[in-house]
Design a protein around this nucleic acid. Structure first.
Lengths: 198, 198
DNA sequence: GTCTATATCAAGATAGAC
DNA sequence: GTCTATCTTGATATAGAC
């Protein structure tokens, strides 16, 4: 096993080693302190360096954020693909994976989703990989995949922002949504299976 | 007609007249420039006044934001209730109302939804009114109402943040989601009606 | 109800030396 | 690759006079 397969996310990173270190530290800082706490000064401090030095490796803060986002999207895609390959009830699996990722990295999730995305700065194709898994899980219809994505995104967003009332049964709400998107088949889809094969 | 009915949202506002003026100006500023552009300095500038003067009327920026949010939630509830009283296909109506409000006031929508809400500072009950209409539209089940809410919130959030790919057919995605939540009835709901009465 | 003056803090970014 | 020094801008908020 001396020949580990290269992951796409590693291969496609266009960054030099030092820049990668900086991005890695930035991600840790982000996940610990949130998007507001991610500043060039604080990042430099963590690296034992002065802030201006960072600009020798990354053009500006936007480039730093784009690098973090590219990395995170690739990880998200990995998680979705893993959830899909389990096979039984792919929609529920991918929903669980979506929620798990968001709850495990709430600040990272916010960085990705809370503002318009700078597509030009992302590693090409990384945004589509995650989407592809979702489309597949939902039966191939991109419109329904977007609706299901919106549901999942809305659930974690509302949860992360504490918008649900304190007593709300979120597991039940997730079930309702997953069931809804699994059962609809009036437009010729064939995914009305009620229960995953036991 | 000298005796116009008092609106709940006006009656329950705990603010003095001058504070109300300030909040109104703040909302305009917010809607034009976004949450990032809403600062005490700029707000004062618009009012032809110095920033410190504002603190004689509002405790701090948080109180200002809470006042804007209370007002907006009340309006949202009004819109939902109006959409409901139309009756035919309430779910689609309320979905359309939800999207319309968000697209008409994108920055206001972001202010409401983009961070944990400070419930203590809101006008009491204002958050529940909007929720009530949604629960009703969805057939009475709070869990399904939350799932439907998440779908709608996710759709507008992704749209506002340009997360959907350029060519995406959002109307179709909305239809898919609305249909999904209308049709599910395996748990004893009676809202599987396919078409609104023409 | 508004003012001036000020405290305090923090952000992103650049120039130019080493 | 990192440094010091600096620019520029902006934020929330308070004290105390008028």
């Amino acid at each position: 096993m001396g020949c580990a397969p290269l992951m796409a996310s590693s291969v496609s990173s266009p960054l030099k080693p030092r820049a990668r270190e900086i991005v890695a530290a930035a991600r840790i800082l982000l996940e610990q302190e949130g998007p507001e706490g991610l500043s060039m000064r604080r990042l430099a401090e963590r690296l034992g360096v002065r802030a201006p030095s960072l600009y020798k490796h990354l053009a500006d803060k936007g480039a730093l954020e784009a690098a973090i986002i590219s990395e995170a999207l690739a990880e998200q895609a990995d998680a979705f693909e893993a959830a899909l390959s389990g096979a039984a009830d792919p929609l529920a699996q991918i929903g669980a994976a979506y929620r798990a990722f968001a709850l495990a990295h709430p600040h990272l999730y916010r960085l990705i989703n809370e503002r318009p995305i700078a597509r030009e700065q992302l590693v090409p194709g990384v945004e589509d990989r995650a989407a592809r898994a979702l489309v597949q899980a939902v039966g191939g219809d991109p419109d329904r995949a977007r609706a299901a994505w919106a549901f999942a995104h809305g659930m974690v967003n509302l949860e992360l922002n504490s918008r649900f009332p304190p007593g709300a049964d979120l597991a039940a709400a997730w079930r309702q949504g997953i069931d809804a998107f699994r059962l609809v088949d009036l437009r010729g889809r064939q995914h009305a299976r009620r229960e995953p094969p036991a």
